[in-house]
Design a binder for these strands. Structure first.
Lengths: 196, 196
DNA sequence: GGTTGAACTGAACATCTGTTCAGTTACGGT
DNA sequence: ACCGTAACTGAACAGATGTTCAGTTCAACC
């Protein structure tokens, strides 16, 4: 069953996914038609169904792929035992990873309601696992008394919301570059977890 | 031109808006048809056009009304001169106001891309004004040296993202009630603005 | 050079879309 | 009792929707 063939056979599949990514991010899943996706790839609508069974599974594929890549990338970050250092790694990782993929991130947050219940559960569980990796850091820090927190879970939610929010306003040619944003946000997070 | 009339004349208009609010929040603007809205109100699709010229202006009306109400409600909060107290007022106001209107908040954040460019500008400007009211508090606190901040604008963005994020996970019957959430988040915000 | 088979077309499908509008209904004012 | 008029219906419009599928194309293999 190894894939054989055609010069464009290798290219059309990925191109459909990337066209869908861009269009879903710009206009929203419901507002984008299969014909729009197809025309962006330079193909007829029917051709898409050779790579995808459904419009729904096209969306799910994008979101699930994003979540898997996110979890894999975070797993690849070497674990430092010091909770403060680990928390810093998380913040920097999160900011960079999300700023590098604004479209996938946007879809992952905005199109949850367009997933079928079963697909939703899958994505939600992966998101939960990612968030859990942050609460584990916070727990470790609290246990060592490096962190001083009233509520670990709420702090985790607050941190993630704050960091992800960067994507809504950050512009590559804006007043501050990525590194500066990273540093400023890290200061904020560090303050959040340490007693004043 | 005072409105006269019909027992349901007084009721259908508002009912359309509230049906649209709920449906747009649940399924998204693009995924909701005029017929769905109408059937929720118990009316034919054509009847909606007696209260709204467009599907677009139905969305814009909801978002603009929400932003106006938000700005008005915040303006109604008495101004305390102490920046720390004022910041606390802002946080509590923001959390309460947003938790009270999850559907309108959801739409205001998610449906921006479905606005025409002109309508988008109007909403964006009102959001900017709301955010500016927070940066003003932070500026005042920095000037008095009550706050210690690396970047006022980024801090404001971080605070707002964190507070608004509550809406994504808060459940009225959850582990923590509103008051507790308010207090925990206020601690986080206070730490963010004061030197550690 | 003929055969295979994947990639793709183009038309068709049933249904849905936002919006309009000529009529019908029903009710307050006279 | 009748008028005026706002509210609403129901059908129609032109076009778009996701999806299917009988064909066509064309490069790779024997």
């Amino acid at each position: 069953m190894a894939r054989k063939m055609g010069s464009h056979a290798e290219i059309t599949g990925p191109r459909i996914h990337s066209a869908a990514l861009g269009l879903f991010a710009r206009h929203g899943y419901a507002a984008v038609s299969m014909r729009q996706i197809a025309s962006e790839v330079g193909v007829q609508a029917g051709a898409i169904y050779q790579y995808t069974s459904d419009k729904q599974s096209l969306l799910f594929g994008l979101m699930d792929g994003h979540m898997d890549a996110l979890l894999a990338a975070w797993s690849a970050v070497p674990v430092r035992p010091d909770p403060m250092a680990r928390l810093r790694d998380f913040c920097e990782f999160h900011i960079r990873y999300h700023l590098d993929r604004p479209e996938a991130v946007f879809i992952a947050y905005m199109e949850l309601r367009n997933l079928t219940p079963e697909n939703f559960k899958v994505i939600e569980e992966k998101r939960r696992r990612y968030e859990a990796s942050l609460t584990e850091i916070l727990s470790a820090g609290v246990e060592r008394e490096d962190f001083n927190l009233t509520d670990i879970h709420l702090t985790a939610m607050g941190i993630i919301a704050m960091l992800t929010g960067i994507n809504t306003w950050f512009r590559e040619d804006g007043r501050l570059d990525r590194r500066r944003v990273e540093r400023i946000y890290w200061r904020l997070v560090r303050r959040m977890v340490t007693a004043g």
